[in-house]
Amino acid sequence: MPLIDAQNLYKIYDIGGTKINAVNGISLSIEDGEFISIVGKSGSGKSTLMHILGLLDTPTSGVLKLNGQEVSTLTENKLAKIRNSQIGFVFQSFNLLPRTTAIDNIILPLKYSSIPSSEWQGRAEKMLELVDLTERKLNKSNELSGGQKQRVAIARALVTDPSVIFADEPTGNLDSKTGEEIVELFRTLNDKGKTIVIVTHDADLAKVAKRVITIKDGVLI
């Protein structure tokens, strides 16, 4: 059974009477433990596809299954619960809470989970160790470098032990050396069994994945 099974997904926006098919009948299946990159130019629909697969957005039509369960018709509250426990996000602009320490940023998703608060600190520290930032634990987000911020964001995505990590242009705001370190981190995580989906317009970054999916005008090519 695939981890994610998408059948005939459409996402149609109505902008001022003009219909735009951002996702135009995409069928896709992602197995547990895969390392996939979705590559495409700006406006190709790759981000919209990631938002739908990551349950941040709902498809206009089509079927989306996560671990065999239909999820495209669930309520907002249930989707929030699933995002919290089964999906991790890494964004291009890190999106760390300002004036908040690294460890508190990592703890954030745990606050919305059913994991008891007594475990939060321990889990977050383990994640810091995993991304090699233990000594930066109490540094506030504005005291971290770009690469360190992205590592904190990755630790935050991993802290609830999700089934899949979606990373949207994760190296877009980093210099090439730091970007490579982040890519390496994803590879290590994948080696340990984590499913990773990277969305990027950068063909070089896309190549590091084991499977590359190209999207153009809302369809896979």
């Binding site: 990551g54 941040l56 907002e76 509250n77 929030a80 619960k81 995002r83 919290n84 426990s85 996000f89 999106n95 809470l97 954030l108 998703p109 919305y112 989970s113 935050r156 609830t160």
Partner: peptide, 10 residues
């Protein structure tokens, strides 16, 4: 937006 992405309900 971030909190919602990380699992916060409305």
């Amino acid at each position: 937006g971030l909190r919602k992405a990380l699992g916060a309900t409305p």
